[in-house]
């Protein structure tokens, strides 16, 4: 139902570096899980249901608000894994 190559491709798309053991385990788990959730294939999709969705967009004014007391800006900067001054140091991705 799902091949080792499929699992490897999914790991790549999911940005997860997996070892051989885990890939083999997931191949097995996925077959059982997909067989179970595959029950939904019996459902007929009725177009009118989508039109009846109760969801709607909720907008707000585009203004800055303070949502917590204190210096929340500083606490966000402190969370940077590699901080230099007020900058977050990231890997260079464009090369000459």
């Amino acid at each position: 139902m799902i091949s080792k190559a499929d699992i490897e491709k999914l790991a790549e798309l999911s940005r997860l570096k997996l070892d051989e053991n885990e890939i083999a385990g997931l191949e097995k788990d996925f077959s059982a899980i997909l067989e179970y959730v595959g029950q939904v294939s019996a459902v007929t999709v009725d177009g009118s249901r989508e039109a009846a969705s109760q969801l709607h967009n909720v907008m707000r004014d585009d203004v800055a608000v303070q949502n917590a007391p204190g210096n929340t800006r500083e606490s966000l900067l402190e969370a940077f894994p590699r901080r230099e001054g007020d900058y977050d140091v990231v890997r260079q991705i464009i090369e000459k």
Binding site: V45, D46, R49
Partner: peptide, 11 residues
């Protein structure tokens, strides 16, 4: 999967 699941959820 996701399309069918969404329809079943509405039902």
């Amino acid at each position: 999967y996701y399309g069918k699941a969404t329809a079943a959820r509405a039902k």
